[in-house]
């Protein structure tokens, strides 16, 4: 009986555990894998991300200088980020926003392909 009273009092004087969601959002943790973002200026079109992607969602076209990802096929495993020698793909910690139409994200690079030494980062 007193145990119950204890619980009732505790519940009366403590706030809710949940958050009023759309008004107040929890920041994702620093290491959360939310979505991949391309920094196309750094891209040297080495095709490593395309080869490493387990979901086959990345298509790199060296001739056209385009890099595209199908975000609805992407499983956000982070393999492309790991293999990228020039940090042209980065992991963003915020989840992808909902959209009305499914479209791949296509990035086009202007000008000549940058000469960045892939060994600079020490990967591969």
């Amino acid at each position: 009986m007193f145990e119950m009273l204890n619980t009732i009092l505790k519940n009366l004087f403590s706030g809710p555990v949940t958050r009023p969601y759309p008004a107040q959002r929890r920041e994702p943790f620093a290491s959360t894998r939310g979505q991949i973002k391309s920094v196309i200026e750094n891209c040297i079109f080495c095709m490593r991300c395309q080869a490493a992607c387990p979901a086959n969602c990345i298509v790199v076209d060296r001739k056209e200088q385009t890099w595209s990802v199908d975000p609805y096929r992407c499983i956000v495993c982070g393999m492309c980020v790991e293999v990228c020698p020039t940090e042209a793909i980065i992991m963003n910690r915020h989840y992808r926003d909902p959209v009305k139409h499914r479209e791949p994200i296509v990035k086009h690079q202007e000008g000549p392909i940058p000469k960045i030494n892939p060994k600079a980062k020490g990967i591969n």
Binding site: S31, T32, R33, V76, G78
Partner: peptide, 15 residues
């Protein structure tokens, strides 16, 4: 779930 997300980066598919 918070511990999983903080240390592994995903809540369910941790990879």
């Amino acid at each position: 779930m918070d511990m999983v997300e903080f240390t592994e980066g995903g809540r369910v598919m941790t990879s």
